[in-house]
Design a protein around this nucleic acid. Structure first.
Length: 631
RNA sequence: GGGCCCGUAGCCUAGCACGGAUCAGGGCAUCAGCCUGCGGAGCUGAGGGUCGCCGGUUCGAAUCCGGCCGGGCCCGCCA
């Protein structure tokens, strides 16, 4: 990861040159040139100071460039400085030195991971109501959140991956109504996944029934009250159903490569007493007040952050509204309130480590959650307004607290007209929003199975003699790669219109392209008689532009990760991985490795391939795209 | 009525935070090529663009500011 070293040298050299020439406040900002024929880093400093200095940008660039060149002789990685007539000062890398250090660094294990302990960050994502299977909208949340967790850990932050389970809401109650009051079987038919069964066959049927049977709606509120109470036969029964659905959901999450550290349960949050404490304190400071007249009579209200009008937080019957459940959760995450929870292992089955659960009755596990320095909530953009209210209340509770509570929003996933019609829904526009009630959605498992089916055919065609199990494993990896990459690569602020046929795409800017490229690179290393090895002498023989581009790109993973962390935007890594893969394929097509007659050159190229593939694998790992040695 | 987000070739999209360099990068689709070669899930080339519109700032605007148009979402004693 030597590019940042080069950049630091350039910045320092540039600043020194400007200082030496008397341009004190010139600054030393550098950027990547649009085209690498200009150089490897560029500065527009001459253009910026030209006016004040009363000189032409071109002349200044020559002057600064000459001074910088002089100073650059003492640096390790600056190979040349060239002024451009437009006013840019371009810096070139000392190729052999840079190639040698970058490659040897990576082969020695330096993939840019920060080792020092960073801040504690709580990242909340997935958060699917436990009454149905994950659909592709949930997958977007999961992929964004899980990738963020991975990137932050790479950056050294101590991350708590949280998954919030709303086990006491109306959606769960609906399922229970179906089982207890409509006589629907609470066992899934053989071969059916339990969460899929509940979503496809129970939930939608119950909500439909509500329209014609008002008495059923009363059963829902009865169930809700029982769940709220937390004890009794119905509450126990519900707990069992929720655990069963959650287990099925988690298997899908794990299939997608996401894992969690902790499950937070809404029911426990409600019974923890945290809200009461916060409520009392807000009352004392006069932020919440009891409305004694008008339409909100008998309710406790707070001011709307946008309009100043009043928002209800506690209903006239004394129960708290939805935001009021989010507030204590947020306060717990950033340590504004004492931790009321104990912890226990929920599942030891989770790949990659145990999954814990909060508990209000003791808890033996010696782990600690909450109290983070920063909390990131991955929640779709429709909840931006509510999240703003939460942040406002946190600020009232403690000055400046909202700076540590960040809503990472993203737009929803809708369905294309074509996909909707394949599901039996005729629509007017070009797309339609998903709806669990209407049964208008595409489940994650369905998409993965379709992708896998296609990947299997493709893999089998290329590997006629391989065992079925091996082909299956590869196809599964390709399917996950395709879906994760597809959902991550797009700007989170843009709605995704999902089309099943378009999603079955393995060529071009896709996850499978990355998987393929990595396997291709490893193939070279597997087939060779040579050894990856590079010296300053052989590094000098790697003079092709494709070699330089590949080496430069692979040494910039840490840069991409820093940006990804700073803007909570893991797709920076997806972009990086794709660019690296393109650079590798370009190299692959134009530079022979094992056919290279000169042994030193061949070994140096092998070292480059080895290093580049390791960086690609690390980038893929950061976005949860599976890595296979062969496909 | 108030608030948030989006608008870049036939379609999808990068670049926008921090304004710069000759061709605004990719992908899909279309057309023309590249397998006795390290894997063709690849590569090369061609065609395809009023960066929604108008104005402002600037030496310089896809990028910053203002207005407008088009599209999506949110603003409940639902969750």
């Amino acid at each position: 990861m030597k590019f940042l070293d080069f950049q630091a040298e350039v910045e320092e050299t540039l600043a020194s040159a400007c200082r030496a020439l008397g341009y004190k406040d010139a600054g030393a900002d550098v950027s990547l040139p649009p085209n690498d024929s200009y150089g490897d880093l560029a500065s527009a400093v001459a253009i910026r100071i030209a006016k004040d200095a009363g000189r032409s940008p071109g002349d200044l660039a020559v002057e600064i460039g000459a001074k910088a060149m002089d100073l650059a002789r003492r640096t390790k990685y600056i190979g040349g400085v060239s002024p451009h007539k437009g006013g840019f000062v371009n810096f070139g890398i000392n190729r052999p030195r840079f190639l040698l250090d970058a490659i040897n660094g990576i082969l020695a294990g330096d993939l840019g991971t920060t080792r020092e302990k960073g801040e504690v960050v709580a990242v909340e994502h997935t958060n699917v109501n436990p009454n149905k299977a994950l659909h592709i909208g949930h997958a977007r949340n999961l992929v964004l959140g899980d990738s963020l967790v991975r990137v932050m850990r790479y950056l050294g932050q101590r991350v708590q991956a949280l998954n919030y389970v709303d086990d006491s809401g109306a959606q769960v109650a609906d399922i229970i109504v179906g089982f207890k009051f409509m006589g629907l079987p609470d066992e899934a038919p053989p071969g059916a996944k339990y969460d899929v069964y509940c979503g496809d066959n129970v939930y939608s049927r119950v909500t439909k029934e509500y329209e014609t049977r008002p008495s059923l709606k009363e059963k829902q509120s009865l169930v809700l009250k029982e769940i709220e109470k937390g004890s009794g036969e119905l509450a126990e029964y519900t707990r069992g159903i929720v655990r069963k659905i959650l287990a099925a959901q988690l298997s899908t999450c794990w299939r997608l490569g996401a894992t969690y550290d902790l499950l937070n349960w809404e029911s426990q949050l409600v019974h923890s007493g945290m809200w009461e404490k916060i409520f009392e304190s807000l009352k004392k400071m006069g932020y919440v007040r009891l409305q004694t007249q008008g339409e909100n009579e008998g309710c406790w209200v707070i001011p709307d952050p946008d309009t100043g009008e009043e928002k209800v937080v506690v209903r006239s019957d004394g129960t708290a509204v939805y935001v009021a459940k989010d507030i204590p959760y947020a306060a717990w995450k950033i340590g504004l309130i004492g931790d009321p929870f104990g912890y226990e292992v929920y599942s030891g089955e989770q790949p990659g480590g145990p999954l814990y659960s909060t508990t209000l009755s003791g808890g033996k596990a010696k782990v600690h959650f909450g109290g983070a320095e920063l909390a990131v909530s991955v929640i779709d953009a429709r909840q931006s307004y509510l999240q703003k209210i939460v942040a406002k209340v946190l600020d009232k509770f403690r000055e400046g607290a909202s700076r540590r509570y960040v809503h990472r929003g993203y737009e929803v996933v809708a369905l294309s007209k074509k996909t909707a019609s394949q599901l039996g829904f005729g629509i007017d526009g070009e797309f339609v929003h998903m709806s669990g009630r209407k049964g208008l959605y595409v489940n994650v498992d369905t998409v993965l199975d379709r992708l896998k089916e296609k990947a299997k055919a493709e893999t089998r065609r290329r590997n006629l003699s391989e065992a079925e199990g091996w082909v299956d494993e590869v196809a599964e990896a390709v399917a996950v790669a395709a879906l994760r990459y597809e959902l991550l690569k797009q700007d989170p602020d843009k709605m995704i219109v999902f089309d099943m046929d378009d999603a079955l795409q393995f060529q071009g800017d896709t996850g499978p392209y990355l998987v393929y490229t990595y396997a291709r690179a490893r193939r070279i290393l597997g087939k060779t008689e040579g050894r990856p090895r590079i010296t300053l002498e052989s590094a000098a023989k790697l003079g092709k532009p494709q070699e330089a581009r590949l080496a430069k790109k692979m040494s910039m993973l840490d840069l991409a990760a820093e940006t990804a962390g700073e803007f909570l935007s893991p797709r920076e890594i997806a972009k990086f991985a794709h660019e690296l893969a393109m650079d590798f394929n370009d190299f692959y097509e134009s530079v022979p490795v094992n056919q290279e007659p000169d042994q030193d050159t061949r070994d140096a190229r092998l070292a480059l391939v080895d290093a580049a593939s390791r960086v690609l694998a690390e980038a893929m790992r950061l976005i949860g795209v599976p890595v296979k040695e062969r496909i």
